[in-house]
């Protein structure tokens, strides 16, 4: 209880006949970066809004920082910063003024607010545009201003809904780096939702895969892969020549190997455990030249893709 800062217990949200969120239970420890992963309409935003007490769940209980989100949304919102997916600013006000307004809504005195606003604008690299109207900001700038806006109240948790949506790769890299730094240096717990998997993968400690209101699996990337696929968890890619039949046979017979695919000079070895050292030995012993040997980790992309492939086959949609 002391460790987890977000506790979701058996939460269900029903719209008419449809379940937006279905019996979700999740706990997130303090100081973690947790990624909510799922396709559009999976119930990520609904879950986030329920955390903030902006949507009332049909069933279940939610505790954030020890406060009940349904009963005490104001106490929760005092400690949680939320960056919505479609974020907007008052475009007739400058970025700085927007921040001051947010500070005012959080009862931060003007002097502290001004100082903190400048610090944060510096941190998100917007010092030069601080006194420009937000209407003239680019998408990436808005997102960074949004992050500053979330941080001005000194939150314990920040919740980012699709923070990387519509930003160029360099912008994404900067933003993710910024989030990571915040988490490391200030110990802020981060909950971020996304459908862009490799980005989430870069910074998240743990990930929850969310489909049709249900949490399918949670854990770090390897755990997830294990949970979702049970086998074929490791893929070793080998480039060597010549690849004789004899060698192939030997590799196939090695323990844990489930499948071997040949593609020119390239071999893909699927296995239940990391067997790269065994394979390299085999190749060298056979007299072939080993050019490259890499362990291909399952990225979320693959996890995701394979999960959905499977789902379509089952015809659940």
């Amino acid at each position: 209880m002391t460790a987890s800062i977000i506790e979701i217990n058996d939460v269900t949200k029903q719209y008419d006949e449809q379940y937006a969120v279905n019996q979700l239970s999740l706990s997130i420890p303090r100081g973690e970066i947790f990624g909510l992963l799922g396709p559009n309409g999976a119930g990520k935003t609904t879950t986030i809004l329920m955390l903030l007490g902006l949507i009332e769940p049909t069933n279940g209980s939610i505790h954030v920082c020890g406060f009940d989100s349904i009963r005490n949304p104001i106490d929760v919102k005092r400690r949680v910063g939320y960056l919505p997916d479609n974020l907007g600013f008052y475009h007739h006000m400058t970025g700085f003024e927007n921040l001051l307004y947010t500070a005012e809504l959080n009862n931060i005195s003007r002097e502290i607010a001004e100082k903190r606003a400048y610090d944060l604008l510096e941190k998100v690299n917007l010092s030069e545009s601080a006194h420009k109207k937000t209407g003239k900001y680019s998408r990436g700038m808005k997102q960074r201003l949004g992050l500053a806006d979330v941080l001005i109240k000194n939150p314990e948790i920040i919740i980012l809904d699709e923070p990387t949506l519509g930003i160029d790769p360099e912008g994404v890299r900067e933003l993710l780096h910024l989030i990571k730094t915040l988490n490391k240096e200030e110990g802020i717990t981060v909950l971020l939702s996304s459908h862009q998997l490799h980005q989430v993968q870069q910074i998240c400690d743990r990930v929850g895969v969310f489909v049709e209101g249900k949490l399918l699996a949670e854990g770090n990337i390897t755990e997830l892969a294990r949970q979702l696929f049970k086998q074929d968890t490791f893929v070793t890619v080998v480039q060597a020549s010549p690849l004789k039949e004899e060698l192939m046979k030997k590799i196939r017979q090695t323990d844990y190997v489930t499948n071997v695919k040949k593609n020119g000079n390239e071999l893909e070895v699927y296995s239940k455990q990391d067997i790269s050292s065994v394979i390299s030995q085999l190749i060298i012993k056979s007299g072939a030249k080993l050019y490259q040997l890499t362990n291909k980790h399952f990225g979320l992309d693959e996890i995701y893709h394979r999960y959905f492939e499977g789902r379509e086959q089952h015809g659940s949609r």
Binding site: L52, L54, K77, G81, G88, L105, N107, G146
Partner: peptide, 14 residues
């Protein structure tokens, strides 16, 4: 439509 409502509501105000 500006997307400020959700941001506004996420602050500690009823």
């Amino acid at each position: 439509s500006r997307g400020t409502l959700s941001r506004l509501m996420a602050h500690p105000i009823p």
